[in-house]
């Protein structure tokens, strides 16, 4: 037997269909909305055609990390001190250091990072690693396009972080 709701049901009175008030309300609301629409038409389009076009970012935007080299010598600035790993609240940096030898000089100090990995699927882009780095070896760049088909591809290795990133993110100019 179907359930009889009895007195629990409160009937809300709607405008009767076909009545004049009902018709008015339907049209008036639509026209009000359309007024906003047409008022914006002269302003032109605001949406952009992502990914053909990209939103410019602020200069201090914190996107994907970059590792840097010294411009004159080409040596890596990172000495593998692991301070970034200590500062990282998401625990997404792994550094394994090794010793520079005369035949294999990688960085300017006594040690270099043999392994430098950032797990970008964990990173919260807080920028603490950048602050912790005593050699300005790591900075957060502007790239935010990091979607991938495979989680493990989001672990960026030292080579990937050192490579000149694709400059695909426009920077906001001063007046924008």
């Amino acid at each position: 037997m179907p359930y009889d709701p009895g007195d629990d049901v409160i009937v809300i009175h709607q405008p009767r269909e076909g009545a004049a008030s009902g018709t008015f309300r339907a049209f008036a609301a639509t026209l009000k909305g359309l007024k906003t629409t047409f008022a914006r038409v002269p302003e032109g389009t605001i949406t952009i055609n992502y990914p053909e076009e990209k939103t410019p970012v602020y200069p201090r935007f914190r996107g994907r990390h970059k590792l840097h080299r010294f411009e004159d010598t080409g040596l890596e600035k990172c000495v593998g001190c692991s301070l970034c790993a200590a500062a990282c609240p998401a625990d997404c940096i792994r550094v394994v250091a090794n010793e520079n030898t005369p035949d294999n000089r990688v960085s300017a100090g006594e040690r270099y990072a043999a392994v430098y990995e950032i797990n970008l699927s964990r990173c919260i882009f807080c920028g603490y690693c950048e602050i912790a780095c005593p050699f300005d070896a790591i900075t957060l760049g502007h790239d935010y396009e990091m979607a991938d088909y495979n989680r493990s591809d989001l672990i960026f290795t030292k080579e990937m972080l050192l490579a000149e990133p694709l400059e695909r993110t426009p920077l906001r100019t001063a007046d924008e």
Partner: peptide, 9 residues
Amino acid sequence: YRFRARPWD
């Protein structure tokens, strides 16, 4: 142990 790890690792 040279450069193998740091105390927080």
